[in-house]
């Protein structure tokens, strides 16, 4: 009986402990922040054929892009960080083919989002039920994959693509691959 009354304290203590440890070790720099592991890295990207966001346009098929380096970016209109990412993707679009996958998002909303914040994508595939997200192992969005000319995943990044990531990680990767 008494144990039940200890339970709230134990749960709180556990949460506080984990949070405190993660926060302070991250901030003090003792623990290096690492990227999420992905089983896909250095393996072929999953076969992906999606309906095109533009009605009547042909299906988006990833295998059509063999022979060039492609950036696949999962995004949605309801995702606030995705807005911040648009200018970065626009600058990347000068060097790479950027393909967008609209993840669990209504077609109308995606279109409104792209008119409002700009459209960096070569083409946008629609993943309405998030099934493609599952195949790729998407944690949450935004999430970005760099794919080489042979169709293998070179790199996966969960979170917003920023300048540092582009210059320090992405650019060296695609320059050695290309």
């Amino acid at each position: 009986m008494r144990f039940i009354f200890l339970l709230p304290l134990l749960i709180f203590g556990l949460l506080a402990g984990i949070t405190g440890f993660a926060l302070f070790s991250t901030l003090s720099g003792t623990r290096q922040v690492e990227q999420l592991p992905s089983v896909l890295v250095e393996r072929p990207a999953p076969d992906t054929r999606q309906p095109n966001l533009t009605e009547g346009a042909p299906e988006v098929d990833l295998s059509h892009y063999r022979g060039q380096i492609v950036l696949v970016n999962f995004f949605a209109s309801w995702c606030v960080p995705c807005r911040a990412e648009i200018p970065m993707l626009q600058s990347l679009a000068k060097d790479l083919t950027v393909i967008g996958i609209a993840y669990k998002d209504k077609v109308q909303d995606t279109k409104a989002f792209l008119t409002r914040f700009g459209n960096p994508y070569h083409v946008v595939g629609v993943d309405l039920d998030g099934r493609t997200g599952i195949t790729w192992g998407v944690y949450g969005i935004p999430e970005t994959y760099l794919i080489d000319a042979q169709g293998n995943v070179l790199f996966r990044h969960a979170g917003v693509v920023d300048k540092v990531l582009i210059e320090n990680t992405l650019r060296p990767l695609w320059e050695t691959a290309g």
């Binding site: 999420l36 309801w78 949450g140 935004p142």
Partner: peptide, 19 residues
């Protein structure tokens, strides 16, 4: 807080959102 927790452990900034 899941996105926040994730960021603390590996630096990723993501959204779970309405779905």
């Amino acid at each position: 807080f899941y996105p926040l927790g994730l960021e603390m452990f590996n630096g990723a900034r993501i959204t779970v959102g309405p779905p």
